[in-house]
Design a protein around this nucleic acid. Structure first.
Length: 661
RNA sequence: GCGCUCAUAGCUCAGCUGGAUAGAGCAACGGACUUCUAAUCCGUAGGUCGGAGGUUCGAAUCCUCCUGGGCGUGCCA
């Protein structure tokens, strides 16, 4: 049920007498911000009066529209207010009949979109062999939620995890295996051992890079110092008009200096940490060209070196096992996992096609696509002949167009890569790929409490697994403490407690992430997201549990309630009932808003509003002690529908529910 | 330098293609429990929507400039 759409159709009929752009004006219907203006408002009279320009003011235009509107079956008589708003209040009979129609419907009354064309969603895309960390949350959670939501709306969905399975990280573990690995240990527990090898080699590589960067970092400090003093001289010489600008330049250079000093300090710390490590210190001395050697291992792999290729073939499944463990825990699954390696054989064809089309040309030995709207070209082949991710992305795009018949392809990727996608889409345009909508579903950074990108104390990224463990542990402390559990019958066994903690904890992380608009950065605060009061998943999940309990106490199931409604009918006796039912009928709007902006936070807002409306209902409208059978049936129906909606909504966010907590 | 992006209540954040008195949660204060699990509800207080112009009947929203952050910027992804 999409109420605004229903109203729009009626408005179209009335509007078509006045304009041939009726759809545009009909679209100006939205929910009111204040219930005293009714449930929905049409804002089309003001712009239409201007468009008609026949001397009639907006209020007159509004009343002409109202006279031609046929809304009797849906609404109370419309009211014209303010400069020309048309306020619409839904009839109680409309609300009750609609509720009865959708009661018990698994789709919550949502219309199924009919289309053959798919939506391809590219998300998560971690580098295998590298532990997943906090930076992977957003793409994974947002992408999964979009896949679920758009899929539920009826679009055929193709999810694809574009794994980084062909890059330097494999050079790292191959090097690690050759130099530090042990056949038997790797065979016994490949996942753990490979992760360990990755960690060791990566640290040694970082060490070498840090050492080599020292002169450059020191020079940067000198340069910055000089820039500061030059800028200060400028201030002295500047006339009053230029003072401000000159001072700004000083503070800019001072910031640059501070940054340069911080970079040096962090490099020096990295170095001294390794030097002092009894295990890594000596190894670092021994493998002093490890940074370039690792790249050579990668290059050999790409050239088809037999040893490295066989190691890659042997290690890759274990790396996938590792990330799949995480996906299983998050309840996230993909239709395809076509990583970079899958496209490797197609890259030469991509570049030659670009050359044939005259799009790519040689520049300094690299193959580049120059685009008029960008300063820097898109490089598709390096001087050394290696391909880049731009090349892979083009091959991927071509493959998807051929295989998946997409109407849209969504790339759920960090906003810092937006320029890359701008270029990619521009080149795709020149390729002649016009009838597919390519969208970079960009998102911001997860920040720590200090407002800086989230890191551990030692400066490394926080592992995803430990993050989930922390959340589950916190959830258990708050939800499954003895004080709360004492009242439950039957008592809650350890197993159920653990399950609840997992559902609440993981849900909290997903919900917190999805509750922010994807394009903004947000501060990660575990205590707040797992807290049980406020705008949290637990609040919604708890509402659900309360509803389950009511139905249990009333000793009815969904079918029983439907039968009761058929027998006793539906009637509202409290405003909280009407408000909640109206809210339940807005589910479809919320889902379409998610699609429109590719922004799951609209669904989160909707669920919080719904849970809040339920809390008010719950406070004011006792179900079991209701005064009459009709009132009781009505309230049971509301509970059933609300429970269904919240569970479905959470499910579309990738969040589970529990029947008691 | 150029490009992108952000600035909303003490804090964390919403605010849909321009719509009526800018919202929520947390924190603060005051109420409501013989409870269908109070993890709740009701109320109070709190904002020159970074600043200045402009477009409009109407601007947090669109445009320009300014201030202050963040990010990106030819061979990593």
């Amino acid at each position: 049920m999409h109420v605004p759409q229903l109203l729009q159709q009626r408005f179209m009929d009335a509007l078509s007498e006045f304009t041939d752009q009726a759809d545009q004006y009909a679209a100006m219907i939205r929910a009111t911000s204040d219930p005293k203006h009714g449930d929905y408002q049409a804002n089309c009279a003001m712009p239409l009066a201007k468009h008609l320009n026949d001397g009639r003011n907006p209020r007159e235009v509004a009343s002409m529209l109202v006279a031609r509107l046929e809304l009797d079956d849906l609404c109370e008589p419309p009211e014209i207010a303010g400069p020309g708003f048309i306020n619409l209040k839904l009839k109680e009979s409309f609300l009750t009949t609609t509720l009865q129609q959708i009661l018990g419907d698994e789709r919550c009354g949502i219309t199924q979109v009919k289309t053959d064309k798919s939506i391809v969603i590219d998300f998560s895309s971690p580098n295998v062999a590298k532990p997943m960390h906090v930076g992977h949350i957003r793409s994974t959670v947002i992408g999964d939620s979009l896949a679920r939501t758009l899929g539920f709306l009826g679009y055929p969905i193709v999810t694809d995890n574009h794994l980084g399975d062909w890059g330097t990280q494999f050079g790292i573990i191959i090097y690690g295996y050759k130099h530090f690995g042990d056949e038997a240990t790797v065979a016994a527990d490949p996942v753990t051992e490979l992760a360990k090898l990755y960690r060791i080699v990566n640290q040694l590589v970082e060490y070498q890079k840090a050492i080599k960067s020292l002169p450059r970092l020191r020079q940067a400090i000198e340069d910055a110092k000089q820039a500061v003093s030059l800028a200060r001289i400028d201030v002295e010489n500047a006339d009053s008009k230029q003072q401000k600008k000159a001072k700004k330049a000083v503070s800019a250079t001072e910031r640059r200096l501070l940054g340069a000093e911080a970079n040096l300090a962090s490099a020096e710390e990295k170095i001294s940490n390794i030097d002092q490590d009894p295990d890594l210190g000596p190894r670092a001395k021994e493998h002093d060209s490890i940074d370039t050697d690792v790249l050579e291992e990668t290059a050999k792999l790409h050239r088809g070196d037999e040893v490295n290729l066989s190691l890659w073939n042997r290690f890759l499944p274990h790396c996938k096992d590792e990330i799949n463990r995480m996906y299983n825990r998050l309840d996230i699954h993909f239709d395809h996992t076509l990583g970079e390696s899958f496209y490797h054989p197609m890259l030469a064809k991509v570049t030659s096609k670009l050359e044939q089309l005259g799009l790519a040309s040689d520049s300094d030995g690299a193959l580049c696509v120059f685009l008029p709207e960008f300063d820097a070209p898109m490089i598709v082949r390096k001087q050394d002949g290696a391909y880049l991710y731009a090349t892979t992305d083009l091959a991927t795009l071509e493959y998807r167009l051929n295989e998946f018949n997409p109407a849209e392809i969504l790339y759920v990727v960090d906003t810092r890569q937006s320029e890359h996608f701008d270029k990619l889409f521009a080149v795709a345009d020149h390729f002649g790929l016009k009838d597919v909508k390519l969208v970079h579903v960009n998102f911001g950074t997860v920040l720590g409490e200090d407002g800086r990108p989230m890191k551990t104390r030692s400066g490394s990224l926080i592992g995803l697994e430990s993050l989930l463990n922390d959340a589950v542990e916190r959830a258990k402390e708050v939800v499954c403490n003895p004080e709360r559990l004492s009242g439950f019958t039957p008592p809650m066994e350890t197993e159920e407690q653990q399950h609840i903690a997992e559902v609440i904890g993981i849900g909290a992380i997903k919900f917190a992430d999805l509750s922010h608009h994807r394009t903004s950065d947000y501060r990660f605060n575990l205590d707040k997201m797992v807290a049980l009061e406020g705008n949290t998943s637990a609040y919604v999940q708890y509402s659900y549990a309360r509803m389950q309990k009511i139905l249990q106490n009333a000793n009815v199931n969904d079918e029983d309630v439907a039968a009761l409604v058929r027998e006793h009918g539906l009637e509202f006796t409290h405003i909280a009932e009407r408000n909640l039912v109206l809210q339940l009928l807005k589910f479809e709007e919320a889902l379409h808003n998610v699609h429109k902006d590719y922004a799951p936070n609209h669904l989160v807002d909707y669920l919080l509003d719904t849970a809040k409306a339920y809390s008010r209902f719950n406070d004011n409208c006792h179900v079991i002690k209701a005064e009459s059978q009709a009132i009781r049936s009505t309230r049971l129906a509301i509970v059933v529908q609300c429970k269904q909606t919240l569970a479905k909504g959470l499910n579309l966010l990738g969040i589970d529910v529990v029947s008691r907590m």
